[in-house]
Nucleic acid binder design. Structure first.
Ligand SMILES: [Zn+2]
Ligand SMILES: [Zn+2]
Ligand SMILES: [Zn+2]
Ligand SMILES: [Zn+2]
Lengths: 140, 140
DNA sequence: AAAAACCATATAGTTACTATAAGGTCAATA
DNA sequence: TATTGACCTTATAGTAACTATATGGTTTTT
């Protein structure tokens, strides 16, 4: 054993703040390099695996999909190509997020207006909310 | 056959603008009343089923979950209770949507700032985007 | 009669995990 | 020494709301 810094999956999990199953899952998905195994079959991780995992987790917090992360990792393996692909990926992702925001805002408006059609304190039978969903008035 | 207005699943699907599998799925989930069957086993739907389906679809467009729709439908079956539960459901849902919007906006800001760390036209090796994800600078 | 269109059920796939089952390994304890 | 507990292994199923496929029966059209 050259550098005696290996850890087992539980320690890595604690280090990164993630569940052990998630680590195995990323390995299975090809996002995390398969670690060496001890004689008993236990996974043996290095500092590098910790960095890979942290990278993946940061990407996930940016709501990048596993496929997108896969792409980013593949770019990292060809460091002498132009980085325009990375920027395209990011631009597309930003535009996805903006689309989501826009449609959620439209949804919020609809919901607020629906909510306004009930003055509370009624019986369900005459509740404006259910009535509006069942038979919406058309607003210009 | 008393009122000869029954339709088969394909016709109902076309009427509502939905796939036949989705109709069967809603029935299986207990959202749509099970229709009568013809002698050959085919489902036989009435106008009422069309209205139920339209209600469900409108709820889905408001991004209400199937569980929430289930709740709404159960309220409809007890029309002489106060409608405050409906309003609570809606208020909770609106607050969910607002939470989503807020966190997506925060995400958008992060992504835009990340994007700004690359001036394009570089090699991947020196791309500020990957560098930032791997090793983020701390901003106040 | 044969082909096309429709219906039926059951099952698997999607995303990113999370949870469970069934069992092997290791260190500490009774 | 036997057993407990914590840890590890793999494999499989569950989540949400559909969507797609496989396989086979029925009806309608050509
Ligand atoms: Zn994206
Ligand atoms: Zn009301
Ligand atoms: Zn909701
Ligand atoms: Zn770049």
């Amino acid at each position: 054993m050259l550098g005696g810094r290996e850890m087992r999956i539980g320690q890595l999990a604690q280090l990164v703040g993630i569940e052990t199953q998630t680590i195995r899952f990323y390995e299975q998905q090809g996002l995390l390099s398969p670690p060496d195994r001890q004689e008993n079959g236990y996974r043996s991780y290095t500092k590098m695996h910790g960095e890979q995992l942290t990278f993946i987790r940061r990407c996930r917090k940016l709501d990048l999909s596993l496929v997108e992360i896969h792409e980013l990792l593949s770019y990292q393996k060809h460091p002498h190509q132009p980085c325009s692909a990375i920027n395209s990926l990011l631009d597309d992702h930003i535009s996805d997020v903006r689309t989501q925001i826009t449609s959620l805002q439209a949804l919020e408006n609809q919901l607020v207006s629906l909510r306004a059609s009930c003055s509370n304190e009624r019986e369900i039978e005459t509740c404006g909310v259910l009535a509006e969903i069942s038979d919406p008035k058309i607003h210009s």
